[in-house]
Amino acid sequence: MSNRSCCICCTICILVFILPMIFVIIFSPSSVKFHVTEFSLTQFNLTNNNNLFFNFRVNITATNPNKNTIVYYRRIQAIAWYKDNDFAYVSLTPFDQGKKNTSFLQTAVFQGSSVFNLKPYQLAEYYAETRAGVYNDLAVDLDMKVRFKYGRLKSNRFDPPIVQCRHLSVPLISNGKSVASFNGTKCRNNYFFVDRYSREQDQWD
């Protein structure tokens, strides 16, 4: 490889990988915050042959607290979990989020069935929760690909850390009634404006 080719490769690497890191260090926009505001569960039935039949809707908000940063959500996948088992995936509509803005993501609708194997103690918890009418260990993760813009500077697409909305206590709605109401829950996520794969690589280096 010629010296010129090496210089071109180095320049490309700087533009693609180093400049976004410098941007984050200098401007350090505040992380986007996510909240589950509504969780409507109308079916959650595990049969004797380990088929889970489910039907629920989840509303989540994203709050961009930054006055100089626009966020472009280019891919959003919602992943449903119960007791550390993922069982359903839904793709949500991409959108652009303005500065200092709170936006509702498209409602995530999970409906269908999935083969589901619980450990004996988890199965006992499931039956206890079914009798009580409240499921205590549901969760929804958000796996995203985004870009952001600060002034005229726009980042490359990257994968922020997984947003984890865990340990949700969700009442079952039966015949239009439930034994309790769902309380809004804050989701957990690491610093939003850093690619999670670069962070993983840093941990291995």
Rank of each mutant, 00 (worst) to 15 (best):
V16E: 12
V71Q: 00
N50P: 06
F110H: 00
D141H: 05
E200V: 04
G184P: 02
I8P: 00
F44R: 05
C187Y: 00
S178V: 14
I8R: 08
T42Y: 09
N101I: 07
R57I: 06
N68A: 14
N156F: 10
R157H: 05
S155T: 15
T47V: 05
F44D: 00
F39W: 09
Y127C: 06
F53K: 04
Y82L: 03
C187L: 03
F44I: 05
S113R: 05
S30T: 10
R196L: 14
I173A: 04
T130M: 09
F23M: 08
K100R: 14
A88Q: 01
A132K: 11
A128W: 09
D205V: 11
N55Q: 07
N50R: 14
S40D: 13
N59I: 04
P94Q: 15
G151Y: 13
S114E: 02
H35F: 10
R75A: 13
E38V: 06
Y127E: 14
N190D: 12
F148C: 02
V109F: 14
N101H: 09
C165I: 05
N48T: 08
C10N: 10
Q164N: 04
P65R: 05
P20S: 03
L105F: 10
R4V: 12
C6Y: 00
F44W: 12
R166Y: 13
A139F: 04
F23H: 06
K119Y: 09
A124K: 13
F34D: 01
S155G: 07
N49M: 11
V90E: 03
V24G: 01
N189R: 04
F39H: 01
Y121D: 15
I8N: 03
P65G: 07
Y191E: 02
V179W: 15
C13W: 13
P120K: 10
S198N: 04
I76G: 01
D202V: 08
F27M: 08
A108V: 01
T107K: 08
K186A: 04
P65W: 11
T102C: 06
E38N: 10
Q77K: 05
Y126L: 00
G98T: 08
L142A: 02
D195G: 06
L92K: 07
D96F: 06
S28H: 12
F56W: 01
P29E: 06
R199G: 03
